[in-house]
Write a protein that binds this DNA or RNA. Structure first.
Lengths: 349, 349
DNA sequence: ATGCCGCGTGGGAGCGGTCCCACGGGGTGA
DNA sequence: TCACCCCGTGGGACCGCTCCCACGCGGCAT
């Protein structure tokens, strides 16, 4: 045996896995043919295809992703970016369920999911270049703020991007969101149908699109029912429990006669419950309450909270397919997709 | 300009990014030197290093991960595998918080996090080969069942692996877990200190290590206090709300005189609350209750639940560092790490 | 019979890094 | 002065795949 024929010792301790070359040799065909079989090209004779498939099975061959990626300059992976993950926001089932949907939507297309949780600001700033350099095929962006510039930088770098939610009405990038306005309308209509007339609302931060949508829905429902909108029945929260309590206290001060509250999130609703209790109001006897999100707390607070449900997993799946579409052919694909919400009636209203 | 000098049109629409070659040309050095600078080799003169660093900055160069990975047969990425993600279990803050810690622990080492959520069984079965073929540098495995063989197959394939929790006392693989036994002991000791004597427990599935640990802690605390363990005060749940209700009902039937319950999870505790209410018992007046996990429901059920907290984020961080250690030098690294738990006292006990 | 077409095919040339060998030049000791 | 060493360096070979060009061959029209 000449030196050249001796197998080179591998550098790493890892098991040496069969290459496409090995498959070709075993199947008695060329590399090109094996590649064609793997990639499902029709230009392969049945004979060769069978031989290759047998060789693949016998060797337990699986293509090396790095090599393929280097050759094609695709990666078959997308990044899911959650900014600001520290702020235990990430622990909200909101994210998990969307991720679940995303994962389902991607894996059926053979795509990998890269989870990128960014901590501080500066880290987030570096992200655009980083993502482009990693050559992920696309990016899913969660929880973008109105003034966030990352989406635009990604767009400049020609990285296909899909957002969860939009930054504002004029969002140019592809995105998926729930019908917040419609959901809020459902909630308030339900309160009105229950005979309530002084319906207050605790909103989210006014600079967030979801918050505005839910407030608009509140107004819609009142208008539809011919009930005038009273501005003193509207108080701003910030999607936190504390914010919910403060807003509720303020509302009770302004309008002690209120008989219903629509809170733009379950967490704020839970704060409202505490404040209502403290003020001696019974729920739903004195004050009916509806939340938004149908999160886990909705089922567990006392009384169980009527809430608006968003189809989170489906939103994730939709995000995945929008992104795949955009990756396949840039510039195609619908801009924004709105998914319907639904009212889950429990005991609080 | 000869044809050979004309830039080749790039195949994809993406912007062509500078390569290491371009940096070398611009800096007036060889490829090797650039590579050395990037990888922090000391064998580079200050002069060359400065020139290279300038060129890198000017071109905005970022190394191509696929190429590096092909050459080194490392990937600088690890997979986090969550089996069975369908079962909305994944939505538990448990996972999110651990993932948060994992992400923090990895990103500081420049490692990427690949999230792999498996649905059905067959998919899970293919996973070992798949993971080895993707050449992730390591695997983090969540929620392994006692009879799960994936860890062993990964070990055979020489893939560094760290588990969240262990399959049993004899776990050979690296893993991180909370001190379940100690936490349970804290919980039950707290109940005894409150003057309770007929302390029941709702356990998890007996084939799960966490469940056994928490049951052992329950026994420990009673023994420490000289209170005999009564088997009829022990009922098995399955970590679901339904299971908790059923177990609580059974316990009330067996021992109507019980005055305290330690539930091995908050979710089961929440089921127990419902059943206790239905039986007309007040909490904590008639029956004191302690849960486990300090999950979000603990804060929101009525009354707020005293519960045992596990340091989830830290568990994630520890998993990451164990894995990195194992990747750096196989076979080193401690087998199992146990992190302390802590009792969070609220109003239920 | 001869040309032509087109199908299946083999294999060369990259993709962009790392690894390592070989080489030039300045310092050191004999 | 000469041999030796070591340090910094350039660049060839290679990682495993895809892309694409060129080629052989059988079937069809001429």
């Amino acid at each position: 045996m000449s030196p050249a024929e001796q197998p080179q010792p591998s550098r790493t301790a890892a098991v040496r896995r069969p290459t496409l070359n090995a498959v070709a040799a075993r199947a008695g065909v060329g590399r090109g043919t094996v590649s064609r079989v793997i990639n499902g090209s029709p230009k392969v004779s049945d004979r060769s295809r069978a031989a290759v498939e047998r060789a693949i099975a016998e060797l337990g061959y699986v293509p090396n992703r790095a090599a393929r990626s280097l050759a094609t300059s695709r990666t078959d992976s997308v990044a899911l970016v959650v900014p600001d993950a520290q702020s235990r926001l990430f622990a909200e089932p909101y994210f998990s369920e969307i991720i679940l949907g995303v994962s389902a939507g991607l894996s059926s297309a053979g795509m990998q999911l890269l989870l990128v949780l960014t901590g501080d600001e500066t880290e987030y700033g570096r992200l655009a270049g980083y993502l482009a350099a990693q050559r992920v095929d696309g990016v899913l962006l969660m929880a973008v703020h109105a003034e966030d510039t990352l989406p635009d930088r990604l767009a400049e770098l020609a990285v296909p991007t899909v957002l969860a939610g939009r930054r504002g009405e004029a969002e140019r990038l592809g995105h998926v969101r729930a019908d917040n306005r419609g959901g809020a309308r459902l909630a308030v209509r339900h309160l009105l149908a229950g005979g309530r007339r002084a319906v207050a609302t605790i909103t989210g931060p006014p600079d967030m699109d979801v918050a505005r949508g839910r407030l608009d829905g509140y107004r819609d429902a009142l208008r539809d029912a011919g009930v005038p909108v009273a501005e003193e029945l509207i108080a701003a929260g910030d999607f936190t429990e504390q914010g919910g309590r403060a807003a509720m206290r303020e509302l009770l001060r302004r309008r002690p006669d209120l008989d219903a509250v629509f809170a733009a999130s379950d967490v704020m609703a839970s704060g409202a419950v505490q404040e209502l209790r403290a003020a001696g109001r019974r729920i739903p006897g004195d004050v009916a309450l509806v939340g938004f999100d149908d999160s886990i707390v909705a089922r567990h607070i006392d009384p169980p909270l009527t809430s608006v449900r968003q189809p989170l997993a489906e939103m994730g799946r939709t995000m995945a397919s929008l992104l795949l579409e955009e990756i396949a052919q840039r510039g195609t694909g619908q801009r924004g997709v709105v998914l319907p919400t639904e009212l889950v009636v429990r005991e609080s209203a």
